[in-house]
Design a protein around this nucleic acid. Sequence first.
DNA 1: ATTTTTCCATGAAATCTGTTCATGTGGTGT
DNA 2: ACACCACATGAACAGATTTCATGGAAAAAT
Lengths: 301, 301
Amino acid sequence: MIERTHLRIFREIDRQGSLTAAAESLHLTQSALSHTIRKLEERVGTALWRREGRQLRPTQAGEYLLRESLRLLPQLERIDEVLAGYAAGEQGTLRIGMECHPCYQWLLKVVDPFLAEWPGVDVDVKQEFQFGGVAALFNHDIDILVTPDPIEKKGIQFEPVFPYEQVLVVSRDSALARLEQAEPHHLSDQVLYTYPVAVERLDIFQQFLLPAQSSPRKHKTVEATEIMLQMVAANRGVATLPQWLVEEYSKQLPIASVRLGRGGIHKHIHLGTRTDEARSSFGESFLALAFQSAGVGKVST
Amino acid sequence: MIERTHLRIFREIDRQGSLTAAAESLHLTQSALSHTIRKLEERVGTALWRREGRQLRPTQAGEYLLRESLRLLPQLERIDEVLAGYAAGEQGTLRIGMECHPCYQWLLKVVDPFLAEWPGVDVDVKQEFQFGGVAALFNHDIDILVTPDPIEKKGIQFEPVFPYEQVLVVSRDSALARLEQAEPHHLSDQVLYTYPVAVERLDIFQQFLLPAQSSPRKHKTVEATEIMLQMVAANRGVATLPQWLVEEYSKQLPIASVRLGRGGIHKHIHLGTRTDEARSSFGESFLALAFQSAGVGKVST
DNA sequence: ATTTTTCCATGAAATCTGTTCATGTGGTGT
DNA sequence: ACACCACATGAACAGATTTCATGGAAAAAT
């Protein structure tokens, strides 16, 4: 019934003080406005303006409508603006999914400059996925997936952004700290701390222990990296983490890293995106920053 | 840019889950909706829905617009309802102007049943007028003027609704209380209490004292009727009020009324309205109740 | 007091926007 | 593989909005 134009008309007649002036400022003829307001009054079924001489003054109903106009129009105009922001790609939310626990530290380094560059854009990081990160990406629950294990799938595209070596973390007091490289049997009498994810996704098992049909004395899971490393520092067990992360923490904690096997376990952080659709400009920008970070963050050699 | 229809479309597609169903419930063809949303997306400059197989799911911008729709549409619908109320005459404000202090008590008796009958209508009573009550009525500041002194003017119409006799109020202990009728000289040694209005509008002066070139010992003004009567009851002076009002208060206070002069001063409460325009149905109803009250309230004989 | 100007109303014609009709395309379920 | 279902699209149509031309009435100017 009441449309946005009507609200605009009310506000403009009030602002300009006359129908003629209002018509002008609405880029309409006086006639058009006159027709419009008469039709509106007919539809509503009550007078909205009193004709006083050559003046037009709102009735009670008109006053009410004027108040509502002044209240609602700015809200509608705000919508237009926000929408323009979306269209220009300056507004929105970048939803990032994380499938590797330690990558979080790396992500922060990318998100920081990103937020500075895109003040209108929010970043939302999700870590739990009912059907896995790739499904979440596919279902548009997230826009970018950060994972060390790219799973090829039609419509999804992965690109490596950050190479790192997965190493064994041990206490500096431990005998293991003096090894050139760790072998599976070295873990037989150790407690192994990992993040609480399925064993299938733990490289230490898949690429190191299981091939040698070896296993640690005990396997315990920990959520927080700090806690995990404190346990290791206290010589209560060992863990596996990216080399660069260990390096960072070794400034604060008495820990050391040992290569896993002869060549070590080498991995990449991958970024997954959907191929089908056009990426938002801020999405593009995020990826660019991510690739940049690869150079800077490449601490392990 | 964003019109009400668009908001409706967003809400309906969300509610119904499909464009086809939404079109149905909006009494449109599927084609019409499809055209409309494509045009909207073109104008806005960004996709608002993702086409997923044969499903239609909102994009980020679409989600935003959906939230705003759910928030704003009810407000717009409320406007329609209120406006319908105005049109049906069930909604509005009846602005009553009062030019006689003691009439307030009478007004309350009319307003009470009126409010019960018109739950959607507010009553606003104004008592101060920069250019007099008639001007206020003429300028649409008030809709009904309650006054004992009708002033004929083009476009304004007065009707008497309530006859009353203006009497002298005295203490029961006073010697005056035994008089059949008061004469001007009886006030020469009395303090006269009146409401704080111009002497020209006080009948006790205009119709009683001044013609006899008499005056009270002292003239004091009081705002509140109760205070005024307590002063009188305490025998500190006299006042003039409508007979029926005195009668009511004499149940609680030791006061008595004395006729002013031989025939007494007889007055009417008049209701003034604008002649030009159609009265609202509740305005009509108010007048009807007012006339009714004349019969009931006619306490003086 | 008369004239001029200003502002709003109105009918008919023109234009524009939104809608329908008819049809096409592609994903979904059996 | 088939029918079905949901959305897309182009052309034609209908209705609503807008303009043009004009009139009337109040206010301002002469």
